[in-house]
Design a binder for these strands. Sequence first.
DNA 1: TTCCGTCAAGTCGAT
DNA 2: ATCGACTTGACGGAA
Length: 293
Amino acid sequence: MIEIRGIRLGFFCSTGDSKLNTNRKFRLSNLSLEKVMETLESNIKDFIALLDLSLKLGCGIFRLGSNFIPFASHRNFKREWLKIIEERLKEFSKILRKYPIRITMHPGQFVVLSSPKQEVVSNSLRELEYHFWLLDTLGIGKEGVVVVHMGGVFEGKKESIKRFKKVLRNNAWLLQRLVVENDERYYSVADLLSADLPIPIVYDHYHHSLNPSNFSIEELFKSWGSIVPEFHLSSKPDGKHTFGEHGYWVNQEDFLDFLNTFGGKRIDLIIEAKGKEKAIEKLLLDLKPKFGF
DNA sequence: TTCCGTCAAGTCGAT
DNA sequence: ATCGACTTGACGGAA
């Protein structure tokens, strides 16, 4: 396992060419137990291959794709299917626990706990329940966090944060795994820290560069308690690109900038580059002369 | 085999 | 009004 001044690396969901993918799914109109099991099997198979690849690269963290069990939180997904799936997952967890790799998740943009719409919040909670259940069933400990964003600003950040906190108060189970990440437009690291949330704050370096703020590093780490923080790093794409778009590679300069701020602390860093494992390979190659691992 | 319209879900700014 | 960005383009029918 490669650790650069306390920092372990990892990628997420799939390989850059998507040939290995934990996010396989199908059309909702084709939803059936058979289709779910078939897709889950492919996702499990690729998950193992991606963990093997992570080991080979020296990675210590991997983000599992949210579609691992397609449509698991959808209303048309029958509850009794979960029993059958649970058996399969428990069997798989025996293989999984042999890997010294931290597993975390990051559900989609549809999870908005700060929304003023009750329907959106209840759908979000169902989606999070699925994520928590999956991680629990796979035997993953409390280091298996589930990352969300604060969401939109609606009629104001203050009101949105208030609603978010209320949802946490009314659903205490969320505190077991939920963590919240700064975004590139609305909620900066300082916004999240000053919200005084009862959950850890994920620092995303790229988002922070686009939506900067002053914050206390000590406070940021304090939010994680005894859990090793999961942070994110990505780079701007080369050439013309839209705001917030992630690059195929991650630049050495961005990593060194991150290291300059956080080096020496124990952190699991997910490289959010479109090139996935290719971007990690290249980064390690770039860094080799400096760190010699 | 490749192409391309379409896909469960939210929210925002750019166009 | 539509599109594309985010946590990931992939599915599936047509040609």
